[in-house]
């Protein structure tokens, strides 16, 4: 997993509440055997006029011009600005995979669905909960200014707008440590590799048949 420390990124707004995982990545893409390559299908039904299927070449598909991801001003965005209960629905990890694969590293919303929120950290995405008032302000500023960017600093847990105003966000020390150091849960567990090895040796001595 890539480490996350700071980001000065372009902001893309998705102005609706209860964006569910089926909207983020429709169920037909679950048949895929990959965890990468979902970026072109992110928000597939909102983004294209035709029906998407895994493996399609999206560069030739007809676009819904109004959808934010298709507007040139949001090209290359790395921060997704969203409304309440973002990521609700199924537990599929394909949703954060798609968001990450598209290039987003941060999602800011007033609230997130539980499982999605946890899955973000497992996949190197920083989900930031901000008050409804702040999110409102960000949406307004983003609509008013082309090329609107935010500066996210994980060390100080702050988000700063172009005017220099800033707000603080919460994150558990454990999750912060993992993101700052690019440690996924596996990397974290592997820090205890010696303990696992020692356990394994004892276990094998007691029940050698388990290792036959």
């Amino acid at each position: 997993m890539k480490a996350f420390t700071q980001l000065d990124g372009l902001v893309c707004p998705i102005d609706r509440a209860n964006v569910d995982t089926d909207a983020i990545i429709p169920k037909q893409f679950l048949k895929s055997i990959k965890r990468s390559g979902f970026g072109p299908y992110l928000f597939d039904e909102w983004r294209y006029t035709d029906h998407g299927e895994p493996g399609m070449d999206c560069s030739k598909r007809p676009l819904k011009k109004d959808f934010v991801l298709n507007q040139s001003r949001y090209k290359g965005a790395q921060i997704l600005l969203a409304r309440d209960n973002f990521g609700c629905g199924s537990s599929r990890e394909h949703a954060p995979w798609a968001i990450e694969d598209y290039g987003f590293q941060v999602v800011i919303a007033p609230s997130f669905a539980d499982i999605f929120f946890g899955n973000c950290y497992k996949n190197g995405i920083l989900p930031i909960v901000a008050s409804a008032a702040i999110v409102d302000q960000l949406f307004r500023e983003c609509a008013a200014q082309k090329g609107y960017r935010l500066r996210v600093d994980l060390e100080t847990q702050t988000v700063r707008n172009p005017a220099g105003e800033w707000f603080e966000f919460d994150i558990t020390p454990h999750r912060k440590h993992c993101l700052l150091n690019g440690l996924d849960e596996i990397a974290l567990t592997l820090q205890y590799a010696d303990e696992i090895r020692a356990f394994e040796a004892r276990h094998k001595a007691a029940q050698p048949w388990l290792f036959a």
């Binding site: 990890e93 596996i186 567990t189």
Partner: peptide
Amino acid sequence: IGTSEVEHVLATQTLV
């Protein structure tokens, strides 16, 4: 277990 956990077991032989 879920897919992330499958990978976790593959890599570490353990589960959180």
